[in-house]
Design a protein around this nucleic acid. Structure first.
Lengths: 134, 134
DNA sequence: CTTAATGCAAAGGTTTTGCACCCTA
DNA sequence: TAGGGTGCAAAACCTTTGCATTAAG
C-alpha cells in the first residue's frame, strides 16, 4: 500500500482500517453499499455514513479512487492509472489488462485544458451475463 | 442528424423536438436540468420529467448518449464514438479533438468480455477555472 | 378517435450532513 | 481532556414513475 500525505494525521480507527482492507481485498470494484454489506456480514460495527465518509477521505489522500458509471459510484483501492471494464447488464466492474495510454493525455493538452489524466471504461457484457443470455 | 429506428414510430411533439434541438445546439454537454432551464428560458412549456423521459428515449434510439461523471448525468446529441474533457472544478464537459482509438477495444477483448466500445474522459481544469485559480 | 406524450407530485435510489455521543491520543 | 470519528436520522440531490389529462396523427 502506497503511503502518502504523511503530513495529514488520520486516525486509523477500526472502521477506517476495515473499509480500506475490504476495498483492497476485492478484485472487483464495489459500491459503498457493497463495502458496507461486506463489513456487516463480517460482524463489523459500522454505518453506511461512515463508509461513505471514509471512502471520500481515502480518495483525498489518494489511497482510493471513484469510478462513475450508471448507478452508484464504485471504488478502487488502486490509484495507479489503469482501465476498467464494466458490464452493461450487471454493473460488475473489474480491471482490464490494457496499459494506460499516456500519449492520449499529450494529445488532449492541445485543447487548452490543463489535463491531469483520463479515465477509460470499456463497456459490454461480462462472461457470466453473456452465458445467461443464451 | 442521423436517422435510425424508422420502424419505431415516435411522435414528434413540440417538447421532443425542442429537447433534441437544444441538445444539438450546445457545444457543451448539458445536464437534464440545463436543458430544462434553457427551454424554460425560451418560454417553452415543458417539465423536467419530460426532459428526462425524452433524453432517455433519444438514447434508446441512438440519437443521444449519456455521459457519467461526478454529479448529474450529462447528455450528448452526437453518438459517433469520440472523447470528452471534463473540468474537475466546474463540471463543464466538452468534446476533445482526439480520435477514438479502436485498437484499445481489440486489446480489451482478450479479457473474455464481449466489448462494445469504451468511454474516455479526460479530467483536469478548463481554461476559465485555471484563470480563476490565479 | 386512439394512443402515446405530458405535467404534476410522489416515490426511489444515492450521497451528504447536523448533531449528540464516543473514542483515542 | 480535546479533537476528530461515529451512528443515526434527516436532508439533499438526482432520476424515475403513477396517474389523470392533453394532444398528435
Amino acid at each position: 500500500m502506497r503511503i502518502r500525505n504523511m503530513s495529514n494525521e488520520w486516525r486509523w480507527t477500526r472502521q477506517r482500517r476495515k473499509v480500506l482492507e475490504t476495498l483492497g481485498s476485492r478484485r472487483d470494484h464495489p459500491t459503498a453499499e457493497d463495502v458496507y454489506r461486506d463489513l456487516r456480514a463480517q460482524g463489523e460495527q459500522v454505518s453506511l455514513a461512515t463508509v461513505y465518509r471514509t471512502l471520500r477521505s481515502l480518495e483525498q489522500e489518494e489511497l482510493a479512487r471513484t469510478l462513475h458509471g450508471a448507478g452508484a459510484d464504485r471504488f478502487d483501492a488502486c490509484i495507479d492509472p489503469h482501465y476498467h471494464l464494466s458490464c452493461d447488464k450487471c454493473g460488475r466492474t473489474v480491471d482490464v489488462p490494457v496499459a494506460y495510454h499516456r500519449p492520449l493525455d499529450e494529445a488532449a493538452r492541445q485543447s487548452g485544458f490543463e489535463i491531469r489524466g483520463h479515465s477509460l471504461i470499456f463497456f459490454g457484457r461480462c462472461p457470466r451475463c453473456t452465458d445467461e443470455e443464451a
